[in-house]
């Protein structure tokens, strides 16, 4: 267990030669990268290239088999205590929202603060209501997830993650399951979050969002980071053939 003293300029996420296999299928083939506090990175790449797998290793929803991942000074290992610490610092938003259908929207958000952060019910509800305000759906607090639209559900899911006061937010294709007219309401929330200084890793095909918000765009293909650059360089001056192909295909749509 390595618990480092956190110097101000240390990256908040450090990945060193991260490998991941599903059985003998090599999905991540040595990812080495790091993210600074407050950085906003967009991850893109073709289907099956390992984008989801990569961000899921960062909160241990997937286990990496080789290499090192250090989040905010805590190394990810089999140590359950460390895993739980890291999960409290890393919020995650899923493509399919994954709200808890048996709980109201408010309870979805207060569950973590009450059961993990040990806040009282009223403290947690106060936080939850102000977060629902922030994502602009305070009026849906006492409904169940099945009773609100996809875009609203995804905003509840973002509020749920934020309620743990994470230092890092991971987004795995947060708008891919949404009808087109709901995409912008979710992107608006994410944009606001980015401006608030949150460290964000976003897997998305929304290239407009990447161009506008990202500090860095990373391009994954077949388990490696093929190219990473500022959005301007990435879109206007891609270096690799695969990147060029991907950009031309994506921008056609």
């Amino acid at each position: 267990m390595a618990e480092h003293e956190n110097a101000p300029n240390d990256p908040i996420i450090m990945c060193e030669d991260v490998h991941k296999w599903f059985d003998d299928f090599h999905v991540l083939k040595g990812i080495t990268t790091s993210f600074q506090k407050g950085e906003r990175a967009v991850i893109c790449g073709p289907s099956g290239s390992g984008k989801s797998t990569f961000i899921r290793t960062l909160n241990r929803l997937e286990e990496h088999q080789r290499g090192t991942i250090i989040i905010d000074g805590i190394e990810l290992s089999d140590d359950l205590h460390n895993i739980n610490l890291i999960r409290q610092e890393v919020g995650m938003v899923f493509q399919q929202f994954n709200l808890f259908p048996h709980l109201t929207n408010l309870e979805n958000i207060t569950l973590g603060p009450i059961r993990v952060r040990k806040l009282t019910k009223s403290e947690a509800e106060e936080i939850a209501l102000s977060l629902l305000e922030r994502v602009d759906i305070a009026d849906q607090a006492y409904k169940y997830p099945a009773e609100i639209s996809g875009g609203q559900q995804q905003r509840v899911a973002i509020a749920r993650a934020l309620a743990m006061e994470p230092k890092i937010m991971l987004f795995d294709e947060p708008t891919s399951a949404l009808d087109p007219e709901m995409i912008s309401e979710v992107l608006d929330v994410m944009r606001e979050l980015a401006h608030s200084g949150m460290t964000m890793l976003v897997v998305t095909h929304e290239m407009g969002f990447a161009r506008e918000v990202a500090d860095r765009v990373m391009f994954f293909d077949e388990g490696v980071v093929v190219e990473e650059a500022t959005p301007a360089d990435f879109f206007d001056n891609p270096q690799h053939e695969r990147t060029k192909l991907f950009i031309s295909q994506t921008l056609q749509h």
Binding site: R60, L61, F94, N98, F100, R115, R160
Partner: peptide, 13 residues
């Protein structure tokens, strides 16, 4: 599976 992952992601053991 997503239900369990979402629960883990908010830190529930």
């Amino acid at each position: 599976r997503g239900q369990i992952e979402a629960a883990q992601a908010v830190g529930l053991n």
